[in-house]
């Protein structure tokens, strides 16, 4: 088992280093700003005194390295500083919204993952049939559509015309779970449509790849019935690719969620990011970017660790 532990530790270490480098990129990119942050926030017309005051307030007179470590230390304890536009604590603005975003992503994932993997396996088994071709065309179409296109179609038909679900996903204080699920159904469905298509295609490719292995042919030539070929011979080896597909797509959800939140005016972290970008509210931008990137890296990390854990060659070393 020593092999596995050291492999996983190595992978975790690598993830940590990546995260560190990314925090450096996010922080120092803002330093590349023509002029400095104070200048960017206050605009061209700002007086010298105002600029100096803001610089003092933001601690811009300290060297960049020092400020980076202060920022990183704060970020680790959940403190991302103050918004330069509203003056609120960034953490206060973001934390609730982050929970909302996670809820939306989880909602979509709970529907999409089992659905997509089942469909992907079925399509792989029925490969080169009419059903497979139709599924191929449909998933390609779904992948190719921008999230806002799917979102507006759903709003048009399910909210405006059929009046089944609300078009705008506003969340107020206390909603029952049913009500909450109903209100967020359309954004979740949009995400499901995109992610399912991606996931189905990847699952199909992974399974087909697997079914071409000599040991699957051997199982067939041993007279193993088709369902047993899948369950006993293909599935135990399919975990790693499937885990990978799931993690990749959950990571994809994170990017998709930004556009969907804007379409449905959903109070999530994606919205705050877009607002902050257009208002050039850098502390908020940095905080959001770091959170998104960290989630993304963690998911990829989880996939790699999962793949290591399910690899029979590593589980039973020589």
């Amino acid at each position: 088992m020593g092999d596995i532990a050291s492999l996983i530790l190595k992978r975790l270490g690598l993830g940590l280093i990546t995260l560190l480098i990314i925090s450096i990129i996010i922080f120092f990119m803002v330093e590349l700003l023509p002029g400095d942050i104070a200048q960017a926030v206050l605009g061209q017309g700002a007086t010298e005194e105002n600029l100096a005051a803001l610089r003092e307030q933001m601690g811009l007179n300290d060297p960049a390295i020092l400020r980076y470590f202060q920022w990183l230390g704060g970020a680790l304890t959940g403190d991302f500083g103050e918004s330069v536009v509203t003056g609120e604590r960034v953490s206060a603005v973001i934390s609730d919204r982050f929970v909302n975003t996670l809820f939306l992503a989880a909602y979509a994932a709970v529907i999409a993952v089992p659905f997509a993997i089942t469909l992907g396996v079925i399509v792989a088994l029925l490969r080169n049939t009419l059903f497979d071709r139709v599924a191929n065309v449909l998933t390609l179409t779904s992948i190719s559509s921008p999230e806002f296109f799917l979102g507006y179609i759903l709003i048009l038909y399910l909210a405006v015309k059929a009046q089944m679900f609300p078009a705008i996903a506003s969340l107020s204080g206390d909603l029952s779970l049913g009500e909450l699920l109903n209100r967020t159904f359309l954004p979740a469905l949009t995400l499901v449509l995109v992610v399912t298509a991606h996931m189905m295609r990847m699952t199909r490719a992974a399974i087909i790849n697997l079914l071409a292995s000599p040991y699957i042919e051997m199982a067939r030539l041993k007279g193993t019935p088709p369902w047993k070929v899948i369950v006993r011979h293909a599935l135990p080896n399919a975990w790693a690719p499937i885990i990978n597909v799931v993690a990749l797509n959950l990571a994809y959800l994170i990017t998709g969620v930004v556009l969907v939140e804007v379409v449905f005016v959903y109070p999530g972290i994606g919205q705050s990011l877009v607002d902050a970008v257009s208002k050039r509210d850098f502390p908020v931008v940095q905080a959001c970017c770091l959170i998104f990137a960290a989630t993304f890296i963690l998911l990829n990390l989880a996939a790699d660790v999962g793949a290591i854990l399910t690899n029979p060659r590593l589980r039973h070393p020589k």
């Binding site: 480098i21 590349l32 930004v258 257009s278 050039r280």
Partner: peptide, 18 residues
């Protein structure tokens, strides 16, 4: 690997904001 571990839309937004 490092560049790819930042989600593309997020990275684009970061650069555009700057």
């Amino acid at each position: 690997d490092v560049i790819m571990s930042i989600p593309s839309l997020i990275f684009a937004l970061l650069m555009l904001s700057i």
